[in-house]
């Protein structure tokens, strides 16, 4: 009888455990939810940084949306083309249209070329500076304040403040879009990383207004518009805007720009290098020759 004091508990509790375990195992099979095997694979292919750059709650949400078909295979801006290709092969879709994007700061109003309204001694934060009179110290109301809110927002160390203007390192930028939403001046934009031609100014002031505050701003002279062979540049609200569907990165506009506001200059004869910084914007005559020389 003594021995039964040990045997009964072992048998009953052990048996209970075995029965419940078996029942759970059976239930696990019975109630197995059919998860799309693609979901795991897509999740595996994603970077797993959960940065939210895609607009979904983390990589899991993005993977679910891709598998469900509500998001394109290129939905992950961080992974870029490589990840899109992997996901594309999982989903059986060509991911050829994946164009890597990168953030671009549309301002080149560095300390030397742009004037300041007053000396700012506040916190090193653009959002704070925006609260003050005149929305920051820079004379140009569109210009980069250079206090580095975007730099702080960037989780990849891709933004540096150089000469009072934020500059994005294209190599490091993963196009998560954090800086775009952080910049209180709204001058950071996602642009195709491969396109060399970009307008480095956001000012919608007229030519005279721009000239008064910054020597490197777009004055809306329309020279780029007139010279573009592909009809890709247009001046909208006194600011050159490039249509990347049409732009072939030929660089003609960049070479023609009298203010040097457009990036992506082609290595042209020395004459062309010097001319874009010429003070007078309206004179197009001497530049037609350069166009031919290219």
């Amino acid at each position: 009888m003594e021995i039964m004091n040990i045997v009964y508990p072992i048998l009953s509790i052990g048996g209970l455990g075995v029965v419940l375990g078996g029942a759970l195992g059976y239930a696990g099979k019975l109630f197995a939810v059919e998860e799309d095997p693609k979901l795991g694979e897509v999740l595996e292919a994603l970077p797993g940084a959960n940065c939210g750059g895609c607009g979904f709650p983390g990589c899991g949400g993005c993977a679910a949306a891709i598998v469900a078909g509500t998001a394109p295979v290129t939905a992950c801006p961080v992974g870029g083309a490589a990840v899109a290709e992997k996901i594309g092969s999982i989903m059986g879709v060509e991911a050829s249209s994946a164009e890597p994007m990168a953030a671009f700061v549309k301002c080149k109003g560095t300390c030397e070329v742009a004037k300041e309204k007053y000396t700012y001694f506040g916190l090193d934060d653009c959002v704070m500076a925006m609260q003050l009179a005149g929305a920051g110290a820079k004379s140009c109301s569109y210009g980069c304040l250079g206090l580095g809110s975007c730099k702080k927002a960037c989780g990849f160390g891709a933004i540096e403040i150089i000469d009072g203007v934020a500059v994005v390192d294209k190599e490091k930028c993963v196009a998560c879009g954090k800086c775009v939403s952080t910049c209180p001046k709204h001058i950071i934009e996602m642009l195709p990383a491969k396109k060399k031609v970009k307008v480095e100014c956001s000012s919608k002031d007229n030519g005279k207004g721009v000239m008064a505050v910054c020597s490197a701003g777009c004055i809306g002279c329309k020279i780029c518009e007139k010279n573009c062979p592909f009809d890709a540049v247009h001046v909208v609200d006194n600011l050159a805007v490039i249509d990347y569907e049409k732009c072939k990165s030929c660089g003609i506009c960049a070479n023609k720009c009298p203010k040097g506001v457009i990036t992506g200059k082609k290595p042209a004869p020395p004459k062309a290098e010097a001319k874009p910084n010429a003070e007078n914007a309206k004179k197009e005559e001497p530049k037609k020759e350069e166009a031919k020389s290219e």
């Binding site: 759970l24 019975l30 109630f31 939810v33």
Partner: peptide
């Protein structure tokens, strides 16, 4: 555990 599985399915 069982309730969790059951709910996940049903």
């Amino acid at each position: 555990q069982f309730v969790e599985m059951f709910l996940k399915k049903s």
